[in-house]
């Protein structure tokens, strides 16, 4: 475990218990009625879900940037998140939202569909550029179908449900979502971690990586599986939460020796921390309705991204 992992793990271990107190109602263990029940059944699963979703997005972002050798790459580029979102939107369209399992299940099927499509393309092409374009096409197809579903929503309620869900949130989640997402995200992070050494070799370009014995087709399949599991499971339980995968590796990179393999674990921990803190903040903001987590993170992420572009233009990255 490198220095960056230790730093973010320590911060996370401090932030998790603190986040349990934060919310519309601040919990004072001595005086709040049913404090233990609120923490055990509402706040703890929500905090753990934030950690799980954030960890998956952070690790996926780090792996994606390493794979594409581009600090502006985002896990959304592969089209897995839009694929999962499309699955969820179809579930909402048919009014399955009331059933606890159907929505995340549809989302996972959507993510798996995008993964299968990408894997089929990956088997035929070797080039990263062509594959990335294919991923973008999958993303835009899923996005177009999602827009179609919204425009043809059977009623206003379904439409508002879809739009709200697409914004991403951890409101009213329970242990059920935790048990659904945790194993998939952990497996995904393990897969991405395993791809780390090959990603290091890609630092010198694809031909050198192959000359060092990297099987680039296998690496691509590992990436598709790892990002599919982390991002797909995250979208299934929390909706679309943007910018974490893009921003987190940038925060972590200066704390490491900048090898992609050294970035995956600390990015998972930092992603967990970012989503946990952001979700705690949206809970305590004095707004009439809770600010959606996806919106909050995009509000934070967009200016960061612009700043990044400006710094790159000055050549300081």
């Amino acid at each position: 475990m490198n220095r960056a992992s230790v730093v973010f793990l320590a911060l996370l271990l401090v932030a998790i218990p603190l986040s349990l107190f934060a919310g519309r109602v601040w919990i004072d263990p001595a005086s709040t009625p049913n404090a233990a029940l609120i923490v055990a059944e509402l706040r703890l699963p929500r905090a753990l879900l934030a950690v799980i979703v954030g960890a998956g997005l952070g690790a996926a972002g780090a792996a994606m940037q390493g794979y594409l050798r581009n600090p502006l790459a985002d896990p959304g580029l592969f089209g897995i998140a839009p694929g999962a979102a499309l699955g969820a939107v179809i579930a909402l369209w048919f009014g399955y939202a009331a059933s606890a399992w159907l929505l995340p299940l549809f989302a996972l099927v959507g993510a798996a569909g995008a993964m299968a499509l990408l894997a089929a393309i990956a088997g035929r092409t070797g080039g990263i550029a062509l594959f990335t374009l294919a991923g973008l096409m999958v993303a835009s197809l899923a996005g177009a179908l999602t827009a179609l579903a919204i425009s043809m929503a059977p009623n206003a309620f379904a439409m508002s449900q879809i739009v709200l869900w697409l914004n991403g949130a951890l409101t009213d989640r329970s242990w059920r979502e935790v048990w659904l997402a945790a194993p998939l995200v952990l497996l995904g992070i393990a897969v991405l971690w395993r791809a780390g050494r090959s990603l290091d070799a890609l630092t010198l370009g694809e031909p050198v990586a192959r000359s060092l014995g990297v099987d680039t087709t296998r690496l691509l399949l590992l990436l598709v599986a790892g990002i599919g599991l982390t991002v797909g499971a995250g979208v299934a339980v929390a909706g679309i939460i943007g910018f974490v995968g893009l921003v987190v590796p940038h925060l972590v990179r200066p704390l490491t020796d900048r090898r992609p393999s050294q970035l995956i674990l600390p990015s998972a921990l930092a992603g967990a921390l970012l989503v946990l803190v952001a979700d705690s903040v949206v809970r305590v903001l004095p707004l009439v309705t809770e600010l959606r987590l996806g919106i909050a993170l995009s509000l934070l992420g967009a200016p960061f991204f612009l700043g990044l572009l400006l710094r790159m233009r000055k050549g300081t990255i």
């Binding site: 070799a201 630092t203 010198l204 370009g205 060092l212 014995g213």
Partner: peptide, 20 residues
């Protein structure tokens, strides 16, 4: 091409040669 995608230390870069 002298492509080096990430700003890694020289020793780390040379160490990639040990990968096989």
């Amino acid at each position: 091409s002298a492509e080096v995608a990430w700003d890694v230390p020289v020793r780390t870069l040379v160490q990639l040669g040990r990968m096989p």
